[in-house]
């Protein structure tokens, strides 16, 4: 059951990410990114992070992606023209990314036994557990992030304002 759910939603994740890579219209890329983020929320749920699964749907596939689609429509972004990027990206970037993927996959799979197996329904982190740590041990960082959000709102308004 767990393995079947993992395979379905991991497949959806990878398919969505590849679709983001291959589509040429930004709105198609944005919609496939929503698919990736929503299936990641299911994977968080499978790993027992129920609060973060809800936050992923609300914050990422809700708020952030709505902002993205809104900006795409506001700027009336059309199909991107395929120009050749920098040569350094092709020479160093893709082999680097492929080497990183190969190395990480090799390390994770060869140490698979030490990572252990995830069983469905064990170690469920409820909102209660998370807030206990967040509001007792990490109250100051939590309050500092509220200042960060406030500054980000002010910065966004100041940057996007029309100049007279």
């Amino acid at each position: 059951m767990h393995l079947a759910l993992f395979i379905i939603f991991a497949g959806l994740c990878v398919a969505g990410a590849l679709n983001l890579l291959l589509q040429r219209h930004p709105i198609n890329s944005a919609l496939s990114l929503i698919v990736v983020m929503s299936s990641l929320a299911v994977l968080y749920l499978l790993l027992g992070a129920e609060f973060l699964a809800a936050a992923q749907v609300i914050v990422y596939s809700g708020a952030i992606m709505v902002l993205f689609t809104f900006v795409i429509m506001l700027l009336n972004a059309g199909k991107e023209e395929r120009t050749h990027g920098s040569r350094l990206a092709y020479i160093a970037g893709f082999p680097g990314a492929a080497a990183l993927l190969g190395l990480l996959t090799y390390i994770f799979l060869s140490h698979s036994a030490t990572f252990g197996q995830a069983r469905l329904g064990e170690y469920l982190a409820t909102t209660d557990d998370i807030s206990r740590v967040l509001f007792r041990d990490l109250l100051l960082p939590f309050e500092v992030t509220s200042v960060l959000i406030l500054i980000a709102i002010l910065g966004a308004v100041a940057l996007a304002r029309k100049e007279h």
Partner: peptide, 15 residues
């Protein structure tokens, strides 16, 4: 049961 390494490999693929 799913090995946690599979989740990590998926994360590497997405990255």
């Amino acid at each position: 049961m799913v090995p946690i390494a599979y989740y990590l490999v998926l994360s590497a693929v997405l990255f």
